[in-house]
Protein backbone atom coordinates (compact mmCIF):
# COMPACT_ATOMS: atom_id res chain seq x y z
CA UNK A 1 0.00 0.00 0.00
CA UNK A 2 1.14 3.47 -0.84
CA UNK A 3 2.25 5.38 2.25
CA UNK A 4 2.32 9.16 2.59
CA UNK A 5 6.07 9.16 2.55
CA UNK A 6 6.12 7.12 -0.66
CA UNK A 7 3.94 9.61 -2.52
CA UNK A 8 6.59 12.25 -1.91
CA UNK A 9 9.37 9.93 -2.98
CA UNK A 10 7.58 8.95 -6.18
CA UNK A 11 7.01 12.61 -7.01
CA UNK A 12 10.73 13.12 -6.60
CA UNK A 13 11.61 10.12 -8.77
CA UNK A 14 9.13 11.30 -11.43
CA UNK A 15 10.44 14.83 -11.13
CA UNK A 16 6.96 16.18 -10.58
CA UNK A 17 7.05 19.17 -8.27
CA UNK A 18 3.91 18.92 -6.13
CA UNK A 19 2.47 21.69 -4.02
CA UNK A 20 1.29 20.73 -0.55
CA UNK A 21 -2.32 20.78 -1.71
CA UNK A 22 -1.61 18.46 -4.63
CA UNK A 23 0.46 16.23 -2.42
CA UNK A 24 -2.37 15.72 0.03
CA UNK A 25 -4.86 15.20 -2.81
CA UNK A 26 -2.63 12.51 -4.32
CA UNK A 27 -2.16 10.87 -0.93
CA UNK A 28 -5.88 10.28 -0.83
CA UNK A 29 -6.43 9.57 -4.52
CA UNK A 30 -3.56 7.33 -5.58
CA UNK A 31 -4.26 4.55 -3.06
CA UNK A 32 -7.84 4.43 -4.35
CA UNK A 33 -6.68 4.01 -7.94
CA UNK A 34 -4.15 1.41 -6.87
CA UNK A 35 -6.88 -0.52 -5.11
CA UNK A 36 -8.91 -0.27 -8.32
CA UNK A 37 -6.15 -1.79 -10.47
CA UNK A 38 -5.36 -4.39 -7.83
CA UNK A 39 -8.54 -6.13 -8.94
CA UNK A 40 -6.01 -7.91 -11.18
CA UNK A 41 -4.85 -9.88 -8.16
CA UNK A 42 -7.96 -12.00 -8.58
CA UNK A 43 -6.42 -13.27 -11.79
CA UNK A 44 -4.08 -16.25 -11.73
CA UNK A 45 -1.23 -15.36 -14.08
CA UNK A 46 1.30 -17.87 -12.81
CA UNK A 47 1.96 -19.65 -16.09
CA UNK A 48 1.07 -16.79 -18.40
CA UNK A 49 3.81 -15.00 -20.30
CA UNK A 50 3.54 -11.23 -20.62
CA UNK A 51 2.73 -9.42 -23.88
CA UNK A 52 4.69 -6.18 -24.03
CA UNK A 53 3.89 -5.52 -27.68
CA UNK A 54 0.95 -6.74 -29.73
CA UNK A 55 2.74 -6.79 -33.05
CA UNK A 56 4.28 -10.08 -34.07
CA UNK A 57 7.05 -8.76 -36.27
CA UNK A 58 10.72 -8.82 -35.38
CA UNK A 59 13.95 -7.22 -36.54
CA UNK A 60 12.52 -3.99 -37.83
CA UNK A 61 15.86 -2.45 -38.63
CA UNK A 62 17.27 0.41 -40.63
CA UNK A 63 20.14 0.30 -43.13
CA UNK A 64 23.13 2.32 -42.00
CA UNK A 65 22.62 5.30 -44.29
CA UNK A 66 22.97 8.85 -43.09
CA UNK A 67 20.39 11.30 -44.38
CA UNK A 68 18.96 14.75 -43.92
CA UNK A 69 18.50 16.19 -40.46
CA UNK A 70 17.16 19.39 -38.95
CA UNK A 71 18.87 22.67 -39.62
CA UNK A 72 20.44 24.21 -36.56
CA UNK A 73 17.79 26.90 -36.56
CA UNK A 74 15.07 24.23 -36.50
CA UNK A 75 16.83 22.32 -33.74
CA UNK A 76 16.99 25.44 -31.59
CA UNK A 77 13.68 27.04 -32.52
CA UNK A 78 11.73 25.75 -29.51
CA UNK A 79 14.44 26.09 -26.87
CA UNK A 80 13.85 28.84 -24.35
CA UNK A 81 17.53 29.65 -23.85
CA UNK A 82 20.17 29.44 -26.55
CA UNK A 83 23.81 30.56 -26.54
CA UNK A 84 26.33 30.22 -29.38
CA UNK A 85 24.38 27.36 -30.95
CA UNK A 86 24.09 25.53 -27.64
CA UNK A 87 20.86 24.97 -25.77
CA UNK A 88 21.23 26.49 -22.38
CA UNK A 89 19.85 25.42 -19.05
CA UNK A 90 20.45 26.57 -15.54
CA UNK A 91 23.27 25.25 -13.36
CA UNK A 92 23.38 21.49 -13.40
CA UNK A 93 22.43 21.06 -9.75
CA UNK A 94 19.32 23.07 -10.32
CA UNK A 95 18.42 21.34 -13.55
CA UNK A 96 18.94 17.89 -12.17
Amino acid sequence: MLTKNEVGKIAELAKIPLGSEELSAFRLQLPKIITFVENLNKLDTKDISPTFQVISKKNELREDISAENLTRAQALQNAKLVKDGYIKTKGVLDAK
Binding site: V37, N41, L43, T45, P50
Partner: peptide, 10 residues
Protein backbone atom coordinates in the same frame (compact mmCIF):
# COMPACT_ATOMS: atom_id res chain seq x y z
CA UNK B 1 1.17 -8.61 -13.93
CA UNK B 2 -0.78 -6.26 -16.20
CA UNK B 3 1.15 -7.42 -19.26
CA UNK B 4 0.26 -10.99 -18.36
CA UNK B 5 -3.39 -10.04 -18.03
CA UNK B 6 -3.04 -8.53 -21.48
CA UNK B 7 -2.01 -11.93 -22.83
CA UNK B 8 -5.29 -13.34 -21.50
CA UNK B 9 -7.30 -10.52 -23.09
CA UNK B 10 -5.63 -11.26 -26.44
Amino acid sequence: KAQKARTLVI
